[in-house]
Design a protein around this nucleic acid. Structure first.
Lengths: 199, 199
DNA sequence: TTTCAAATATTCAAAATTGACTAATCGAGG
DNA sequence: CCTCGATTAGTCAATTTTGAATATTTGAAA
């Protein structure tokens, strides 16, 4: 299971607990996670099994609505909450050039972190992206001078530069909206969650 | 195996045949396919096995350089060439909003298609992307008006709009470079490949 | 000359994903 | 009140991915 499936499912359990698999399946499908994170229903049930085996979530009995099939209820364990925050922070502080999933997962769960941490991380991300764009620029120039590299490799760098610039612009916009007071983060007045500090 | 692994490995066999697995492994690693397509060495050998089982490639004996381990040589079959072109066309004429792999694979293998088809497809892609950006804009407005949708969902649409705009700009730039005569495509004078027409 | 890290060419078990399948219940229309 | 498609709540076999392990061989340095 890619980290993203675990992050998304653990985050969703945290958000909706106590919760059963079928609810998560329906909820996550409305998020279109099958499109942006490639998570199919089968993977959700598998993630639940695996997260349970790792002790990050636990069963809290079963129930049935009417004469419907029984459903298993899950909730996070204290270790699960710690692990979720760890995965979330790791995602927040890492810029992936090609994989779009992490950033999508971030937007879904960043409200579990404090406003100040998210603001700091966004600043960091903008610097990182700058560096990657710059190094990409040199790569494009190199391809132009090289006699062995196929010419079309230039297009790969061109495309990833443009993608990074998009990511950059998004980070900038989000930074502005957040510092302007938009959205509710952990620890904010009105938030239902307290920030969990790293150990 | 996601289509992309099959596409990349089959395309690479086509490009370098007759070729052994370890060569492909090294070559594809210099393309950084582990970064942009999540293809690890193990997946390459698995793809070879699976493509062989499907009759798209075949073994052409084994050889050994010096006292090195034996290596199995592969080459494409006629059906393999047809299948490669089918996968390539499907990728060319489909715009994925979230998955960045298909476009990266395209840039690596588009020279197997004719210049005129790639030009036509790029035009099509620009129109498709326009439509997706427009529909995204309405989604953003909707989120603003909705009382139930979490506010941060706006960020997801914001991000994908920016990503689509990057893809758009790239398609436009490539279109211009190609119509200006850059790169060598199938059927062009100087090309080593003939265009394979769809059935 | 020895030694030791890197390269060669894979294989394989464990983990994850896919998507079709199951088996029952609900509910809307005729 | 009957029927038939949709919904419910998953399971499971087949496929694919991952990442470590294997068993050499080569080359370079000490």
């Amino acid at each position: 299971m890619s980290n993203i499936t675990r992050l998304v499912v653990l985050g969703a359990v945290r958000q909706f607990e106590p919760v059963h698999g079928y609810f998560l399946r329906r909820e996550l499908m409305t998020w279109h996670v099958d499109e942006w994170a490639n998570i199919q229903p089968g993977s959700i049930y598998n993630a639940l099994k695996s997260l349970k085996q790792d002790g990050y979530i636990e069963e809290a009995g079963t129930e049935a609505a009417g004469k419907r099939p029984e459903r298993t209820i899950y909730r996070t364990t204290p270790q699960g909450v710690v692990e979720l925050m760890r995965m979330l922070r790791q995602t927040l502080w890492t810029v992936e050039t090609f994989d779009t999933k992490p950033t999508m997962a971030l937007t879904s769960f960043m409200f579990l972190l404090s406003r100040s941490e998210v603001v700091a991380a966004l600043k960091f991300r903008m610097t990182e992206i700058d560096a990657k764009i710059a190094s990409n620029g040199f790569d494009i120039a190199d391809v132009g001078h090289s006699t062995t590299t196929p010419a079309y490799v230039r297009e790969i760098f061109e495309l990833s530069s443009l993608r990074l610039r998009a990511e950059q612009e998004w980070a900038k916009g989000l930074y502005e909206r957040i510092t302007a007071g938009n959205y509710v983060f952990a620890g904010d007045p009105g938030s239902r969650v307290e920030p969990v500090e790293p150990k």
